[in-house]
Design a protein around this nucleic acid. Structure first.
Length: 112
DNA sequence: TGTCTGACTTCCT
DNA sequence: GAGGAAGCCAGAC
């Protein structure tokens, strides 16, 4: 893997998020060994806004709220993308977030 | 070159 | 139990 940068690592994890599943900034940050760098994950999402291979819409905050929706082109684009994958969104918040939550630390191999 | 901000989370009071 | 402050790091001005 060439993901040496923190940003690249974030992108790598985001790409592995299955369709119809979501994760949180903190989950990715913690998986990368920087639980308190969740803000950087959000910043990474902002930096990868132009990348189609990075499903930033599947990354939300700990409560399952689409805090980053305003960074998408359309006001509801983030919600539209999630609903298109079968994720129910109401009032900018993911329904059954606890069930749809995808933890990279649990799904991916942490032993690099 | 230095300071501030930012799509969050966690700990402490 | 609830609220506030600190921390992480890179990009922009």
């Amino acid at each position: 893997m060439e993901e040496e940068n923190f940003f690249e690592k974030v992108y790598a994890v985001a790409r592995k998020i299955p369709s119809g599943r979501v994760t949180s900034y903190g989950a990715i940050a913690r998986y990368l060994g920087a639980a308190r760098s969740a803000r950087m994950v959000g910043w990474a999402m902002n930096a990868c806004n132009g990348r189609e291979d990075v499903p930033a819409h599947r990354v939300v905050n700990r409560k399952g709220v689409l805090t980053g929706k305003h960074h998408f082109e359309g006001t509801n684009l983030m919600q539209q993308l999630l609903e298109n994958e079968g994720v129910e969104v109401e009032d900018n918040q993911i329904i059954d977030f606890d069930i749809l939550f995808w933890d990279p630390s649990d799904e991916l191999d942490t032993t690099e």
